[in-house]
Design a protein around this nucleic acid. Structure first.
Length: 474
RNA sequence: GGCGCCGUACCCAAGUGGCCAAGGGGAGGGUCUGCAAAACCCUUAUUCGUGGGUUCGAUUCCCACCGGCGCCUCCA
């Protein structure tokens, strides 16, 4: 289990993964503020974490994966006012959409935790920070005092002096230092508020992730993940307040994993700029498996440029994999009862494992997938090899390996979603194919070709081969 | 201005101090086939932004420059 290497933002190096507790992985990812439909950038994080979870499971770990919903904050309040519904309704509406989108992409859901259901835990952390002198109260607000935490800046690699030099933000006069950040905000009139020792109010953005992750995972948990744009200030602040809370006796989290941004037309996809492709819309245009495949074609830390050309490429590439898998299955149906021989597949599996163990390198792992595909195609394509007695067993082994790589690890289905009328449609197609075959045997090729062209226009592809005609939906 | 990342073929994209610099998409040629599709074979980087340095040897390490991006403000 020790062969996994993870890039840790905290040390800026690749480190062997050593769990806090043998056989177990505790991980936390910063979720989103549910106030708008999720876009492709959000889904990248979701898919990356799903892959991470799946790979840990393949390595034999039991994974405890927690993700938060920031279900109360300024933007949710604004949204609630715009839509004329309550903040709870806003949060529920968009959380639900997010979960649906994630599930559509084949993601196994983490344990979701909400800020509004964990106020006690949050207040408890703030209280202790005030008591221990790391935080101070001003007019019902509570601020964390950055100067009290000497290691501030260790994640993002900047010093407090540098930040002051480059500060562009307006300084709140009530703060002792410009970098101090809010742990608790006093309620303004007509805002949702919770009781606290400092009066009615609600938590600051950073404190919730600290409180929730510590509550559900405990100190020094294994992996804290998020988008790269969260490194500063969000994660930097989380470390400061959490380690202060832990009296600097233990680290907050041990490995910091950050995925790269998704860009659109050379700009980061972001709600605030409006440069977004909502995943909802994209799902209308592309099968979720294609979207997921597209997200895996690049290493998770590399920025990913979104484009429809890339998605079309992903579609073609995935089709190549699926075609090989389906051909292989058809071949095996002619050789019922063969048990899989894993020997031929073994080198591919090993290579795939090595890629995944090297910081979850899915882009590299996909190269191995294609080598496996090539191996399968060659066997089926070469009559002398296909006729060998051992070929069915070896092919079965290769198909098992392919399925394991694609479906079990990468979570990309090898079958397209079944159509609603598949039973009827299948019967109909068999008739169409038979009639067309009749035309072909009478050499009425223009009629046969017209049928094929018409079906193609409908999105149904006919493929003739010496073994007969097959059909599939494009 | 500060911190950090990146620049590999027509496009996307892995990667390593020295074995032919993965893989995908696209394009061209060939095999099979009535044709098409799929698949297979061949071709598409004597070279990894530019210029120096370290080294027996660098695309890979160091420095400078050019170009692109992220963060420094809410952000996945």
């Amino acid at each position: 289990m020790a062969e996994l290497v993870i890039y840790n933002t905290l040390t800026r190096t690749e480190e062997p993964f050593i769990p806090r507790e043998p056989g177990k992985v505790a991980m936390y990812a910063c979720g989103l503020t549910p106030q708008a439909p999720a876009h492709v950038g959000h889904m990248r994080g979701v898919v990356v974490m799903d892959i991470v979870q799946r790979w840990f499971e393949q390595l034999g770990y039991t994974v405890n994966f927690v993700q938060n919903f920031t279900d109360i904050d300024d933007k949710i309040i604004r949204r609630a006012n715009e839509e004329g519904i309550s903040t709870t309704e806003v949060a529920e509406k968009y959380s639900k959409m997010y979960v649906e989108d994630a599930e559509a992409l084949g993601v196994r859901l983490p344990r979701f935790v909400k800020v509004t259901e964990n106020m006690d835990a949050i207040i408890e952390v703030v209280q202790r920070l005030v008591k221990d002198g790391y935080a101070y109260v001003v007019d019902g607000d509570v601020y964390f005092e950055v100067n009290k935490f000497p290691e501030y800046g260790k994640l993002s690699g900047r010093s407090v002096e540098e930040m002051q030099a480059g500060a562009r933000i307006e300084v709140d006069e009530r703060k002792r230092n410009p970098e101090d950040f809010a742990l608790w905000k006093a309620a303004k009139p007509n805002e949702p508020a919770w009781d606290s020792p400092w009066g009615k109010g609600r938590p600051g953005w950073h404190i919730e992730c600290s409180a929730l992750s510590l509550k559900y995972l405990g100190a020094a948990f294994d992996i804290h993940a998020g988008g790269m744009d969260l490194i500063f200030p969000h994660h930097e602040n989380e470390i400061a307040q959490s380690e202060a809370y832990l009296h600097c006796q233990q680290p907050f989290a041990r490995y910091w994993l950050h995925w790269g941004p998704v860009r659109l037309r050379q700009e980061k996809m972001s709600k605030s700029t409006g440069v977004v492709v909502p995943i909802r819309e994209l799902r209308q245009q592309y099968e979720p498996a294609v979207i997921r495949y597209f997200l895996l074609t690049v290493h998770y830390r590399t920025p990913l440029e979104f484009s429809y050309e890339r998605l079309d490429e992903a579609k073609s590439a995935l089709e190549r994999i699926r075609t090989a898998y389906q051909r292989g299955q058809a071949f095996l149906r002619e050789h019922r009862g063969t048990s899989a021989d894993p020997v031929v597949a073994e080198p591919y599996v090993q290579q795939f494992r090595a890629s995944m163990n090297h910081d979850f390198n899915t882009a590299q792992a996909l190269a191995t997938v294609f080598e496996t595909v090539h191996e399968i195609n060659t066997r089926l394509n070469t009559p002398e090899i296909a006729a060998l007695p051992k070929t069915p067993a070896e092919t079965a082994g290769l198909l098992d390996a392919l399925q394991w790589m694609m479906e079990t690890v990468l979570g990309v289905p090898l079958h397209q979603p079944a159509t609603a009328h598949s039973e009827t449609l299948e019967q109909l197609m068999q008739h169409v194919i038979a009639w067309r075959q009749e035309l072909r045997s009478r050499k009425l090729y223009d009629l046969a070709d017209r049928i094929r062209d018409d079906l193609k226009a409908m999105g149904i592809l006919l493929e003739d081969s010496p073994q007969g005609t097959t059909w599939r939906i494009a």
